[in-house]
Design a protein around this nucleic acid. Structure first.
Lengths: 98, 98
DNA sequence: GGTTTAATTCGATTTTGATCGAACAATATC
DNA sequence: GATATTGTTCGATCAAAATCGAATTAAACC
């Protein structure tokens, strides 16, 4: 299981980020990650199938919304808040205010 | 051609607004409307088919992003900036900053 | 009334994205 | 090495959304 290559913050696009957020499950994940420093996939799973969630994590990674750190068998996800704030100031604060 | 019923600002949802923004054409429309008080559909048309654009205008109306005022045969669209700012402070400023 | 203009609605097609079971990979533990 | 745990990948299916031509509505104008 290789490390993921996350997009550079300069490569993030507003459209890409908005697309990443435009799904109820992903928005929920992002808003949860706004409240904690990081969370494993299992902690965010709920009662959904793992393969579905894995898809959403990938979309969130690809759009630059989250970073996944692999430690042993667990994957810890965190919001790329600083990168997002730098590229799109105020956006995530508005999204996380809900 | 009846007047449209726009959703009340209290009925707007963050997910709905994000969905409305998560399309390249619609994002372009919204960003354009951020720079002018209002614009007719024709003014925003570009070289796209009218029926496609009409679809996007409807999505934008339904998500609460824009208001359409009918005057004669023309439809003037404006961003619902005040309503959006009240419900989701900072969101549109971030989107329009691009 | 006939014509032009602006935009929508209808309906069919295509494309995109979500869902999820089953198989797989990688680590940890015994 | 065997087993359990965590999460991904594959592949198929299903649902949602975009696209756009053709017909339609409505107002404006001659």
């Amino acid at each position: 299981m290789p490390d993921y290559d996350h997009p550079a913050s300069d490569d993030l696009t507003l459209l890409g980020v908005l697309r990443g957020l435009a799904d109820p499950i992903r928005l929920e994940i992002v808003q949860h990650l706004g409240k904690v420093p990081e969370a494993s996939c299992a902690a965010l799973l709920g009662d959904r199938p793992r393969s579905s969630m894995s898809h959403h994590f990938q979309v969130l990674r690809d759009s630059g919304l989250l970073h996944t750190r692999i430690q042993g068998v667990q994957h810890f996800n965190s919001l790329r808040k600083e990168d997002l704030d730098r590229r799109f100031p105020g956006l995530m604060d508005a999204v996380l205010a809900e």
